[in-house]
Simulated scan of single mutants.
Amino acid sequence: MRLNQLHSRPTSGGRGDLSVHAKDLAAIGDAAFTLYGRLEKDGEHAKVASGKAAKDLTDDFAVGSALTDVVEKWKKQVDSLLEACAHISNHLDYTQKAHAGDEYHIATSLSISKIDENFR
């Protein structure tokens, strides 16, 4: 019996099983959080500027109401992306904390002497 490694087996592309490290998760979560902040600010700026243009154009041109429709669609799309970014960021924060808790539990509850005792 081997407790210190997996059995050797061929894998596709010469790589092992999928693994993710905490710093990888943190980088993705940070990127999603940063994207959320920029999208919230820049998306709102575009909505306000386009909304003002739509209002100004509505008085004199038929294209104003079409631009108003575009602004409404833009807001829905930005809100959808903001929700996705928040979900990614929050989920990865939760995942990191959950796995850290699992690691702590395993490390504090696993006793080699207890394992040895059960194999005698």
Rank of each mutant, 00 (worst) to 15 (best):
Y104G: 05
T108E: 13
L82W: 03
K23Q: 14
K41P: 00
Y104K: 15
D17F: 13
G37E: 12
E72V: 03
V71D: 01
F119W: 01
S8D: 12
V48S: 07
L18A: 14
C85A: 15
L110W: 09
V63C: 08
N118R: 07
A107N: 14
E117F: 11
R9T: 06
L82R: 06
A32R: 02
S50D: 02
A66K: 06
D24M: 08
I112A: 12
L67V: 03
V71K: 02
D116L: 13
A100G: 06
H105W: 13
Q77W: 05
E103S: 13
G51H: 02
S111E: 11
V20Y: 13
L67A: 00
G14T: 08
S19Q: 15
A62R: 03
W74A: 00
T108G: 08
T95H: 02
I88C: 08
L25I: 10
I88Y: 05
L3S: 04
L18G: 07
L3W: 09
I88T: 06
K75D: 05
D24V: 04
L6T: 10
A27V: 09
N90V: 07
T34M: 10
G64F: 00
K47V: 02
A46W: 08
N118W: 02
I88D: 01
P10M: 04
H21N: 09
D79A: 05
S80G: 08
A31N: 14
N118G: 06
V48D: 07
S80T: 09
I115W: 04
G29K: 08
A49N: 03
R120F: 04
S113P: 09
L67R: 00
D69A: 14
I112E: 08
K41E: 07
V71L: 01
A62M: 03
E44F: 07
L82C: 05
H91R: 07
V71P: 00
A53M: 11
A49V: 06
R38T: 11
S65E: 07
K23S: 15
S80W: 01
I106F: 11
Y36H: 15
H91Y: 06
K55F: 02
K47E: 04
N118C: 04
K23E: 15
L25Q: 09
